[in-house]
C-alpha cells in the first residue's frame, strides 16, 4: 500500500513537474518575445528622436544661413552704403563749378573711396566663395587656408593630397571646404594643438579626408552627444553638411593615443567637367 502510494506520488510529481517545466519554457519564450517587441517600440521612439534631431539640425543650418545673410546685409549697408554715399557727395553737380585743383582733389577722393568699396565688396565676395576654391579647387583652397594658419607662427598646418586628379563637383567642394574650415576653426579655438595635418585619398567611389591634430579633441560619442544637445551649432552644421553630401564623419583618437583624427568620407562623383 505504502509502495503504491509512493509510486503514485512520484508519477504525479513527474507529471506536474514536466508540465510545470514546459509551461515555464513557453512562458519564458513568450516573455522574451514580448520584451523584444517592447525594445523595438523603444527603438522606434529613438528613431523619432533622431528625426527630430535632424529637423533641429536643418533649423540650425537655416538659422546659420539667415545669420550669414544678415551679416552680408549689414556689411553692405553699414560699410559699402556710406562709402558710396560719400563718393557721391564728392561727385555732385557743383563739381563742374569748382576750380581745377578742387575738382582734381574731389575726383581723387572719390576714386579712393570707390577703390575701398571695391576692396570691401571683394572681401565680402571672398567670404562667400573663396576665389582659390572656385578657380583652382579644394586642394589649393585648403593649401591657402593652411598657409595662412602656419603664417601665424603658433600652429604648424600641413596638408597632403594623395590623389585628387578628378575634382569633386564645385558645390561638393564648397561643402567639404566649409566642413574643413569649421573643423579647423574648432581645433584652433578649443584644442590648443601645435600641429594640424590633413591628408586626402580616394578609394573605389569614395573620397576621404583625414585631419590629425595633437591637441584636445573629441571622439565620436562626444560628437553625437554635442549634436543632440542645444550647444555646438558648428558641429550641427558639420553634421547637416555631411548628410547633404551623403557622407560620413568619424571622430576618434589615434591608436597611439597621441593624436585625434577626424575622417570624412564622401561619395565621389563624375569628374569636374565645367
Amino acid at each position: 500500500m505504502f509502495f503504491l502510494q509512493a509510486n503514485t506520488s512520484t508519477t504525479t510529481a513527474l507529471f506536474l513537474g514536466t508540465i510545470g517545466m514546459l509551461v515555464l519554457t513557453i512562458g519564458l519564450v513568450v516573455f522574451i518575445i514580448m520584451h523584444q517587441r517592447r525594445v523595438q517600440r523603444f527603438q522606434q521612439k529613438l528613431q523619432q528622436l533622431e528625426i527630430d534631431q535632424q529637423k533641429m539640425m536643418l533649423n540650425a543650418s537655416i538659422k546659420m544661413q539667415e545669420e550669414e545673410r544678415q551679416r552680408l546685409a549689414a556689411d553692405l549697408h553699414d560699410d559699402a552704403g556710406p562709402l558710396l554715399a560719400t563718393a557721391r557727395l564728392y561727385l555732385n553737380e557743383n563739381l563742374v563749378n569748382q576750380d581745377k585743383v578742387n575738382q582734381l582733389q574731389s575726383i581723387f577722393q572719390a576714386r579712393q573711396i570707390i577703390d575701398d568699396t571695391i576692396q570691401l565688396i571683394r572681401n565680402i565676395s571672398h567670404d562667400l566663395m573663396p576665389p582659390t576654391l572656385k578657380n583652382f579647387g579644394l586642394e589649393s583652397a585648403i593649401n591657402d587656408l593652411f598657409q595662412k594658419i602656419s603664417g601665424s607662427g603658433t600652429v604648424n598646418a600641413s596638408q597632403r593630397f594623395h590623389d585628387y586628379k578628378d575634382r569633386l563637383k564645385p558645390e561638393k567642394e564648397l561643402l567639404v571646404f566649409r566642413i574643413v574650415q569649421e573643423l579647423i576653426n574648432n581645433i584652433l579655438k578649443h584644442s590648443n594643438s601645435s600641429f594640424i595635418h590633413l591628408t586626402q585619398n580616394v578609394h573605389a567611389d569614395k573620397f576621404y579626408l583625414r585631419i590629425h591634430h595633437d591637441g584636445r579633441g573629441i571622439v565620436q560619442s562626444d560628437f553625437e552627444k554635442l549634436n543632440k544637445s542645444n550647444i555646438g551649432l558648428g558641429l550641427k552644421n558639420i553634421g547637416s553638411r555631411i548628410r547633404l553630401l551623403q557622407g560620413e564623419i568619424l571622430f576618434e583618437k589615434d591608436i597611439s593615443q597621441t593624436y585625434y583624427k577626424v575622417t570624412i568620407e564622401v561619395p565621389k562623383d563624375d569628374p569636374y567637367s565645367s
Binding site: N7, T10, T11, A13, L14, G17, T18, M21, L22, L24, T25, L28, V29
Partner: peptide, 21 residues
C-alpha cells in the same frame, strides 16, 4: 528548453519509477 524541460523530472525520477511508467 523544450527537450530539457520535458525530460528533467523524468530523468531525475527515472530510477524510482515502475517499468510501465
Amino acid at each position: 528548453l523544450i527537450y530539457l524541460g520535458g525530460s528533467f523530472f523524468y530523468y531525475i525520477l527515472v530510477n524510482n519509477l515502475e517499468h510501465e511508467d
